[in-house]
Design a binder for these strands. Structure first.
Length: 414
RNA sequence: GCGAACGUAGCUCAGUUGGUUAGAGCGCCUGACUGUGACUCAGGAGGUCGGGGGUUCAAGACCCCUCGUUCGCCCCA
């Protein structure tokens, strides 16, 4: 290609795209703040170990999708593939255990070396919510309801459904996992190739297989509910009750699982059918073992991440734009006067558009294209009278007014 | 990582079984309208047909490689 291309799986965010992203991020930030989740940020790269420990060496992300590099100092660094690990690391690094529950919101770019598709890029953006240090089911309810509230604010809650499941506590899950491995181990010859691999690395995932043969086996597999201890099932029941009380609908999905040991109890996803295979727009769960895995004191936590690109594709509604005012000088003598007026109005909080070239007709066209609400024309005639021609571009009416009364004319536009 | 489809002006696309100078709509530029946008009309610019190689008298069409996008799987936001 003779023209330069962006790197595979990366996209430029031109102003229009950026506005959609910003809309998602700003809406989320605002709603999160109402829930008491203040924004924070962590570095875009960490020691590789931070992700390897939290996401699991055997996970796809860690084993083959990370952008890792050796620093000049010889240490292995990785561009973050997700936000949770960095925030938990930060929680430990900054000794925040005295501030629990530590509730935060974050957003930014993530990096994963994956095969690109719609809604799946190598550099993509997430919004993220974490609640660290709360072991109570009320935290699960709050975190999930925050997700629902953000989707509602974006006007896309009705396009999504909440899938939810429990993985139980460590004891429950390990018991179930052992039973599953035994069951599927006895039927190895009927398992798909993918699931044979899952049996080694991530047996719970077999429950979610799309392979017809696997599904037949899954039908007859032991049920997780039979292996949940009473603490785990009570916990989950409390979460579900809380959601119902808030009027948040959910679909119990027994096949929704997380493979890693740090994940416990609640797992959930807000999914949509409108984005093809990349249906999860917000996904998260409880990770009571994660902080400990990172070297911190045992600390429970729950959170979720949402894909900004995916959310932005769903939130197609009009974003309210600020309409500018166009200042158009006529003739060289008016240029500096126009610039001065623009500077003054901008400092008063107005959005002012100035074109630097072209005759009156061209500048009017540009003003029109930018959807300007009004045009302020200043020529030598107006200059001499300390006035301007004020044209309402919607009504197509104009009149000459004194510069001194420009403020009230602008206020009258509404 | 596996399987498949697609890549033609800035954008969305058309280009018959390979056959002279590659088209349309929208957008852009110029003018009608040298102090007035939208609407209209008349002109105009813009393409090494993603890139490289091959087959052929002849390739945008066929073959191979490569880059990119998309769909499914895997995985996930």
């Amino acid at each position: 290609m003779s023209q330069p291309q962006p790197v595979r799986g990366t996209h430029d965010l031109l102003p229009e795209d950026f506005a959609r992203h910003a809309h998602v991020q700003n809406s989320a930030r605002e709603v999160a703040a109402r829930f008491g989740y203040a924004e924070m940020a962590t570095p875009i790269f960490e020691f590789t170990e931070v992700f390897a420990r939290t996401m699991g060496e055997s996970s796809d992300v860690v084993s083959k999708e990370m952008y890792s590099f050796e620093s000049r100092g010889g240490e292995s660094m990785t561009l973050r593939p997700e936000y949770t690990a960095g925030i938990c690391r930060s929680f430990i690094s900054n000794g925040l255990q005295q501030q629990v529950p530590f509730k935060v919101f974050a957003t930014g770019p993530m990096f994963r070396y994956e095969r690109p598709q719609k809604g799946r890029q190598r550099q993509f953006h997430q919004i993220d919510v974490e609640c660290i240090g709360a072991a109570e089911p009320q935290a699960d309810i709050e975190v999930i309801s925050l997700g629902a509230a953000i989707l509602k604010a974006l006007g896309i809650l009705d396009k999504c459904s909440l899938e939810i499941n429990t993985l139980g506590d460590q004891e429950s899950r390990q018991a179930y996992r052992a039973v599953l491995v035994e069951y599927f181990g006895d039927h190895k010859d009927s398992l798909s190739k993918d699931s044979l691999d899952r049996l080694e690395r991530n047996p719970l995932r077999i429950l979610d297989s799309k392979d017809a043969g696997d599904r037949a086996l899954v039908e007859k597999a032991p049920l997780f509910t039979d292996y949940l201890n009473s603490f785990s099932s009570d916990f989950f029941a409390e979460v579900l009750d809380g959601l119902s009380l808030l009027g948040i609908g959910y679909h119990l999905n027994r096949r929704l699982v997380r493979g890693l040991d740090y994940y416990t109890h609640t797992a959930f996803e807000f999914v949509t059918t409108e984005l093809g295979a990349q249906g999860a727009v917000i996904a998260g769960g409880r990770y009571d073992g994660l902080i400990e895995a990172l070297g911190g004191k045992p600390t429970p936590g729950i959170g979720w991440a949402g894909g900004v690109e995916r959310l932005a594709m769903l939130a197609t509604g009009a974003i309210k734009e600020v309409r500018p005012l166009a200042i158009i000088p006529i003739g060289d003598a008016a240029e500096t006067a126009a610039q001065k007026l623009a500077y003054s109005l901008r400092q008063d909080g107005h959005v002012i558009e100035m074109a630097f070239k072209g005759n009156l007709s061209k500048r009017m066209k540009r003003a029109n294209k930018l959807n300007a609400r009004a045009a302020i024309l200043i020529g030598e005639d107006e200059l001499a009278r300390d006035a301007c021609t004020f044209r309402d571009l919607d009504k197509g009416e104009q009149e000459e007014i004194a510069l001194a009364s420009l403020g009230s004319a602008l206020a009258a536009l509404g």
